[in-house]
């Protein structure tokens, strides 16, 4: 396995509820390497999503450090963290979080627009659009480019979300229960797609899930309970056998 691309070192996270401090993460250490697929398994309230948000620089740790390629990044400026998220991290969420006013193509293009200036975008519009169309084609949505989220099924929406996460060619994908809102047949299709793309691009992949069977398709399974990592093992499923 190569050197870790994303690392959490002794990360804690507390939330304040009135006068009380609620500890959600209690000293978590975790590393994910390029091309590695890690499943984060645990019951509701174990701190899985919070850890994902901290690793994705959407939330700051109360103590500890988040490193990207060995460089401490959690204390960067808001703008630097946003840039890091845009260039290197792709998110896939349970509820897709597509923008309802935009078509599938526009939702993917929006992610590209965020990385360039207006003139930069207008100058490369055709190329960026072709890239987005190709990616949507790869996730099986060539014929749904101009459909809005309301006109797509749950599986199709999640495919658009996956394309959006991949368009900026990130090194890390953080997926928060991406199949939690899908029926099992659709979920299987979505997971197969994600894993295929992950393998093809050799992405570091962190999958938050409740689903033991899904977790076993990863390389490694990390178990969380009450804000702490309580176990870590190599997966036994198809993913681990890769």
């Amino acid at each position: 396995m190569s050197a870790p691309v994303l690392t959490a070192r002794a990360v804690t996270k507390n939330y304040r509820l009135g006068k009380r401090e609620i500890p959600v993460l209690r000293g978590v250490d975790l590393s994910i390497a390029d091309g590695e697929r890690v499943a984060l398994l645990g019951a509701s309230g174990a701190g899985k999503s919070t850890l994902l948000h901290v690793l994705g620089l959407l939330d700051a740790p109360t103590s500890g450090a988040v490193e990207y390629d060995g460089r401490v990044v959690h204390d960067l400026s808001v703008k630097e963290r946003a840039l890091l998220r845009h260039r290197h991290t792709g998110f896939v969420f349970q509820f897709y979080h597509l923008i309802p006013e935009l078509t599938a193509l526009q939702n993917v293009l929006l992610a590209q627009m965020m990385g360039v200036s207006m003139f930069g975008y207008l100058g490369r519009r055709a190329a960026l659009r072709a890239q987005a169309e190709e990616l949507l084609g790869q996730v099986g949505l060539s014929d749904r480019l101009h459909h809005r989220p309301a006109e797509l099924s749950g599986g199709e929406r999640q495919r658009v979300a996956i394309a959006r996460a991949l368009i900026a060619q990130p090194r890390v994908i953080l997926a928060d229960e991406p199949t939690g809102n899908l029926d099992s047949a659709t979920a299987t299709g979505v997971v197969d797609l994600m894993f295929a793309v992950q393998q093809q691009r050799q992405l570091a992949f962190l999958l938050v899930t409740h689903d033991e069977r899904l977790a076993q398709r990863c390389d490694r399974v990390v178990r969380m309970f009450d804000g702490k990592i309580v176990g870590e093992e190599a997966a036994t499923g198809a993913g681990a056998a890769r």
Binding site: L58, V78, K79, A82, R85, F91, F93
Partner: peptide
Amino acid sequence: ADIGILTAMGGTP
């Protein structure tokens, strides 16, 4: 809801 995803995609406040 859009504010959350915009931030995740690299948007700033």
